[in-house]
Every structure is written in C-alpha cells, then in structure tokens.
Nucleic acid binder design. Structure first.
Ligand SMILES: [Mn+2]
Ligand SMILES: [Mn+2]
Ligand SMILES: [Zn+2]
Ligand SMILES: [Zn+2]
Lengths: 141, 141
DNA sequence: ATCCTACGATGGACTCAGTCCAAGTCAAGA
DNA sequence: TCTTGACTTGGACTGAGTCCATCGTAGGAT
C-alpha cells in the first residue's frame, strides 16, 4: 500500500502519521473493515488517533476512488481497499462475513434501455446473500 | 391491499386500526417510503399512531415476506410493498429517487459454484445507480 | 351484551453510526 | 528555524432505529 501513499503525496496530501497508519491497516485482500474496526487497529499502532480522523481519512480515500464504501443493510459501512479490481460481494446474512466474488456476465448491460427510464446509469452493485459455511452448519445442527 | 389484511387475519394477527392504516399507506406501485414517511402519512389518518408501532408493523410485514426492506447506502431504509413481483432497483445517486426495474438475465446463476466459497446463496440484490432525468439536466446546465 | 386477557400500542429513554466544530498541533515549504 | 494553513482532537450533536414498562383493546369466551 506504499504506492497508495505515493499517490496521495502526488495529490498534495500531508503525510501525517495518522494517514499512514490508516493506509497500513487497510492493506491486504478481502479486507472489509468498519470504521470502528479500522480505528481499533490503527490505535494499536498509534494509540491516540481519533475516531474523527479515521472517518475523515476514510471519506477522503473514498472520494479519491482509492477505497470503496460497502453499505451492508442496517449495520456500519465497511471499507474495501480493493478498489482497482471491480468485484461484487457475497454476504452472510447471519454473521455479516463478506467475500469478494466475480460473477460472470455484465450486470450493467442486463438492464435494457426500455428499463432505464431516462436515467444515466453509471454503476451497478450486486450483493449475493446467504449463509457462510460456518453459519449453515450452526443452523442445521 | 385488502387482500393483505385478509392474509394477516389468516395468520392470527389482530386487525388494529394502526395496522390497517399502515397497510393502507403502503398500497400502490413504485412505493418506497422510509419508516418516518410511513409514520407521517399514517398520522394523517390516525393522528396518535406512534413511531414504535410503525417500526413494529413494518418489521412484521418484512418477516412475513409481505414487504421488502430496501437499504440505500447511509440513509434510512425504505419499505417496498411490491414483494410478490421480484424486481431490482434503479437509484438516483443525487436525489435518492427509486424506480423498479426488471433486468434480463438471472443474476443468481451468474455466480459460478467456484465463486460461492461454500455459502448457501439464497438471494441476490442488484442496485443500478445513476442520475435521474431531472438530476442529469440540473448537473449539465 | 359484557367480561377477560393476552396481544398490541405508546412514548420516552437509550444505542449506535456517523457528523460537526472550536481549539490545539504539526508537516513541509520558505 | 520559522510560519502557516492543513490536519487532528475530543466532545457535543444528529438521525435512524431499538427497547421497555405501562396502558389499551380486539376478539374469543360466557
Ligand atoms: Mn470487496
Ligand atoms: Mn421496488
Ligand atoms: Zn456466517
Ligand atoms: Zn435525481
């Protein structure tokens, strides 16, 4: 994720320790943390980082397109650093676990012009819901 | 929507004036109201109905499958009485307006077994995002 | 028609996620 | 090293939704 820090510097960002730590926490695959989880992990590395700063930084990363905001039903939004490889999500309706998935077909073209009602359609979001292996077992035993 | 009231009676529900009024407010096509909007409209017909009752009734209707809960990003959930005709949603990212749409293709089968990671996948939700005709014009002028 | 009571309604307190703001701090250019 | 505006901080605040003790009433029983 150090290339992310490079890109941010290129955009005129001040490289504060807080921003470095948030970027570090978001590094990896299949990462879908809530803001509070990001805050908790960041605080292990930089104890006095504030919740407000985590929210600010995540918001900035989202509007730069470096992180995707995933809103799952009623719970807290999740933040996904895997923004440069388009993908969809498979969510466990019991425990909330999320996996990245890559469906075949292109959902955007599945919406015929007659069904667009004059909208300028730009993105599509597909969420598969079901039970993860662990929860399937728990509920059937 | 009187058939809805019939079905509810069949399930042992007490037909209170509050439940009747909520059912009445939810009648119609392309209805996607927030809980507070349902409350406001219900209160025109039955002034002292409480927010808690609206939430309770909506929750019950959802778990009976009579109403669908649509969670749009960070805002309040919307409640959709069009539960017996499967459909997806087209949402204006600026003003929040929602239209029902019927994409071709079946998104559920677009997820190959290899991409299911042992999940028992039961539903799929597709949200198309873009600008409605009004907002497209506003932003381009 | 009246009574009974379990189911439902009420409103106010509470939680949780997220935003806002005034004051203090510090990264980085001069 | 100095300066300054961008950034951070913690606490107050908001909005959506839940919880709960208490009260009311739908509808079956008599
Ligand atoms: Mn993802
Ligand atoms: Mn709908
Ligand atoms: Zn699970
Ligand atoms: Zn619009």
């Amino acid at each position: 994720m150090s290339d992310l820090l490079e890109r941010l510097r290129g955009r005129g960002w001040r490289l504060t320790s807080q921003r470095r730590v948030v970027a570090q926490v978001l590094d990896g695959d299949h990462v879908h943390l809530t803001a509070d989880e990001v805050h908790a992990r960041a605080a292990l590395l930089l104890p006095e980082i504030s919740r407000a700063t985590v929210y600010n930084t995540l918001g900035e990363l989202v509007s730069l397109g470096e992180v995707i905001e995933v809103s799952t039903d009623g719970r807290a939004k999740r933040y996904d650093p895997n923004a440069h490889h388009p993908h969809q999500h498979l969510v466990c309706s019991r425990c909330g676990m999320i996996r990245d998935v890559h469906p075949s077909g292109s959902p955007l073209t599945d919406l015929p012009p007659a069904e667009r009602f004059g909208f300028t359609v730009s993105t599509v979001e597909v969420t598969y819901r079901g039970l993860c292996p662990g929860c399937t077992q728990t509920l059937s035993s």
